[in-house]
Design a protein around this nucleic acid. Structure first.
Lengths: 133, 133
DNA sequence: CCGAATCCATTCGGATACTG
DNA sequence: CAGTATCCGAATGGATTCGG
């Protein structure tokens, strides 16, 4: 049963490691930042508050399901605020919080690197693909 | 059939938008950076070259399938280099390229923000959850 | 030792329809 | 207008097995 126990131990290690990762601040942030729609919503709100339908039009690629989920997640994390005006029909505005705004420079850093180096990446890719085929 | 055509147009818009996004450098970078294993491999290689099996031990959470996929992707993007030593058994070393190293400051920026603000995020979450229940 | 290929469970995301 | 609930296909990722 030695092999069996070895397998169990590896699985155990994997679990512990994943648990550790899920507590790591850096990965928690990446988990949210990496979400395709999060980035877009954050950018859409960078210029000022937006209503739900405005967001929907600004980001045509997002289904309204994804949009709902995204804004809820961001609100939960304190990155955006949600304001309901109980008129008829209802009006809901989303706005970046101070915490959310502090995230914009990080996004810009990513964007800056991307624009500066994407050419190299593309070049590397075509070279890699050419070699393969 | 007006509603039908409207639905088609929305779908068309969605397609175009997603196509546009997939060309956006920022999102291409995020797509790779956001990958859980990419971050870990990049960090594991930050200190110097590592063999495949060393990476595997450094990152117990990764199955060897994920590890393979990740290093291949990173090699294709020109972020790491792969060196095969045809001894018996074979020895394969991975190492950050200059391009890969230039990405480390970006990762650090993310990490820095995360460590500085994760507390606020956690606080926001518990408050949000308390309000809900 | 390194890695590709297969199988399978879980998750994600879109379309649709319905509530306040 | 602003969501929520459900169904279902597609993609993800782990375990296992085989090959170089």
């Amino acid at each position: 049963m030695t092999t069996m126990r070895a397998a169990e131990r590896r699985e155990q290690e994997r679990r512990e490691y994943n648990a550790y990762l899920s507590e790591c601040p850096g990965h928690q942030l990446l988990a949210t930042l990496s979400d395709k729609w999060v980035t877009l919503v954050l950018n859409a709100l960078a210029d000022g508050p937006r209503r739900f339908s405005e967001l929907s039009r600004t980001i045509p690629g997002a289904s309204q399901k994804m949009l709902s989920q995204t804004v809820r997640k961001l609100e939960r994390d304190g990155l955006i605020s949600r304001t309901v005006t109980p008129s008829v029909p209802v009006r809901v505005d989303y706005e970046l919080t101070a915490l959310g705004e502090s995230l914009l420079p990080v996004q810009r850093a990513i964007k800056t690197w991307a624009e500066a180096h994407i050419e190299e990446v593309h070049k590397a890719r075509t070279e890699y693909d050419d070699r393969a085929c």
